[in-house]
Design a protein around this nucleic acid. Structure first.
Ligand SMILES: [Mn+2]
Ligand SMILES: [Mn+2]
Ligand SMILES: [Zn+2]
Ligand SMILES: [Zn+2]
Lengths: 147, 147
DNA sequence: TAAACTAATGATAATGATTATAAAGAAGTA
DNA sequence: TACTTCTTTATAATCATTATCATTAGTTTA
């Protein structure tokens, strides 16, 4: 299933004049298959078996290439390092305050909020960012036990 | 006007057993008077006239103290450094993609989104974060001219 | 095909925000 | 005053990310 997505991504890259290297192929494949919004370092570690000589700079460079091509979104939180999400359809994220897990969820876009914001501030609005925070079901269990 | 807010903040600190040092007083005062959501370094630079010997670590330490007391919110965006916002009433932010300016705006809380997110993910929801991005009126003018 | 050009990789150094450490100073307490 | 605790300051350490640059690989041109 993710085969098609990968193929499409490769086409997009080729159309943007970006060469498909084995490293790029592997990073993309990993991003598409992963549900966990990995950091650059996690990607690096996940691929070091197949690419023992790959530099961490290559991971960063290529994530930037993917971001500029619109294939990948960078998620930035307060904590240390960025996380990366392969772009399919629009979605929001809910994040566990305890374990840091990031889970996708869907919700109609908040155009109303964008309109109001534009109206009261005079900005031309391009986009918005929304995240919900809380306790994931797994962590809720642990918190129960701790009592 | 912000006098009252400062007084209240000092009371909150005292009640939390936090000593009021001249540096803390100055950082708080600066945060309250500033509309611009400054970074730690901007605060440091703004106060170096009055406190030539103050260490940048003191700024960071005290911002953390204020954050833990609930007086200050830390705003983390992708770009390098955190920004700090003195907490008064809840509000959202709209951010200019061109100049980085951060402007407050008010909008009813998005409880509906929190409920739906909780429902589809099984999380216990605590909070959410929303930012709107776009072009501020000033930058819109510059963009016009550039054409 | 060979030469020339261009892009990508990998090793390593640099950057920059933030945190840790430890000594010195100030305030609080008995 | 003696003792304890907190705070500041200077400085070093950390760590993610970016820059540099030589090497390699791919593409284009002659
Ligand atoms: Mn996602
Ligand atoms: Mn604000
Ligand atoms: Zn969790
Ligand atoms: Zn602007």
């Amino acid at each position: 299933m993710s085969e098609v997505i990968l193929k499409d991504a490769l086409v997009t890259l080729k159309e943007s004049g970006v060469r498909i290297t084995p490293q790029r192929h592997a990073i993309l494949e990993y991003l598409i298959s992963s549900e966990m919004h990995p950091t650059a370092d996690e990607i690096y570690k996940a691929l070091e078996g197949d690419f023992p000589n790959m530099s961490v700079a290559t991971v960063y460079n290529n994530l930037r290439v993917f971001r500029n091509t619109g294939l990948v979104k960078e998620l930035t939180y307060g904590d240390s390092s960025s996380r990366f999400d392969f772009v399919t359809h629009d979605h929001y994220h809910i994040i566990c305050d305890h374990c840091g897990k990031i889970v996708d969820f869907h919700h109609p876009g908040l155009e109303e909020v964008e309109h109001l914001a534009s109206h009261v501030t005079g900005f031309q609005v391009n986009s918005h960012r929304l995240e919900v925070y809380g306790t994931c079901p797994e962590c809720a269990v642990s918190v129960q036990k701790a009592k």
